[in-house]
């Protein structure tokens, strides 16, 4: 078929002077057993798609999509991790030759060579042979690239305890806080206890103070002043009245949590 420069058109139209048929080839011109796309093959495609969709929905139902707590830019302890398909790029930047002074190598040169070669593959691998054994260099490079991406992803993901990570970053339901911040004892709790026992009394460096409290009000007042177990003494420093309000606060929060 004639293409490009030197094409002849009818008048100033887009219709080529040489008429060529755009009608798809006849059945008989294809080797082997062909099948009409519409409707025979499309029906089979839909069946395959339906099976795929069922599998996909099983995945969706078995694993609800995760949501961590609302973004808190002041949370300095948070260890960021990208989505799994960027882990290999992230891991690459941990190598000495791809970080620090060599960061350009890690963020531009190495990924640039990899993805650039992928983009230009038809021109780098321009021999006539299509079978993998006819083009060992292209296939070898691809296998090498694939192996390094898989290895980098694996080394990045393997040491992470995903379940623990999800547990630690569970969202606190808004409006369901059991802590009554207007309680007179909350101020004392905030200054003396919150850093170890958490904003929701859920624990942290110290144990949780809600769920299964066995102490009376007097015992709580005693622990706040004298400590217990590994908790040092003199954590609470304030007036006796504040101490009493603090103990009330902890007991009332427990009662609220039990409801």
């Amino acid at each position: 078929m004639h293409k490009g420069k030197g094409m002849k058109f009818v008048g100033d139209s887009r219709i080529t002077a040489e008429r060529t048929s755009k009608v798809p080839k006849d059945y008989s011109e294809y080797p082997g057993r062909t099948e009409a796309f519409w409707p025979n093959f499309l029906l089979k495609e839909w069946l395959a798609g339906a099976v795929f969709l069922v599998g996909f929905l099983c995945l969706v139902l078995a694993h609800p999509s995760p949501l961590e707590g609302m973004a808190d830019p002041t949370d300095a302890a948070y260890i960021p991790l990208p989505d799994w398909y960027f882990l290999f790029l992230y891991e690459l930047l941990k190598y000495q030759f791809a970080s620090g002074n060599w960061i350009i190598l890690g963020i531009l040169v190495i990924p640039g060579i990899g993805f650039g070669a992928l983009f230009l593959a038809p021109f780098l691998d321009n021999g006539p042979g299509r079978r993998p054994r006819h083009r060992p260099i292209a296939v070898g490079m691809m296998l090498l690239g694939l192996a390094s991406v898989i290895w980098l992803t694996y080394t990045s993901a393997a040491p992470v305890d995903w379940e623990e990570r999800a547990e630690q970053n569970k969202p606190i339901p808004p409006g369901e806080s059991i802590v009554d911040e207007s309680h007179p004892g909350f101020a004392a709790y905030e200054t003396s206890c919150l850093s170890c026992h958490g904003g929701e009394l859920e624990g942290g460096a110290g144990p949780a103070l809600v769920g299964g409290n066995e102490h009376t009000k007097e015992e709580i007042m005693d622990i706040a002043v004298n400590g217990i177990g590994s908790m040092p003494a003199d954590q609470f420093q304030g007036t006796d009245e504040e101490l009493e309000q603090l103990a009330d606060f902890i007991i009332e929060t427990n009662e609220a949590a039990a409801e």
Partner: peptide
């Protein structure tokens, strides 16, 4: 806009900055 989102994006933007 959860923690994962925020911090991963911050890292991504720091990489872009370099």
């Amino acid at each position: 806009w959860d923690n994962k989102a925020y911090f991963a994006t911050q890292v991504g933007l720091e990489i872009a900055e370099q």
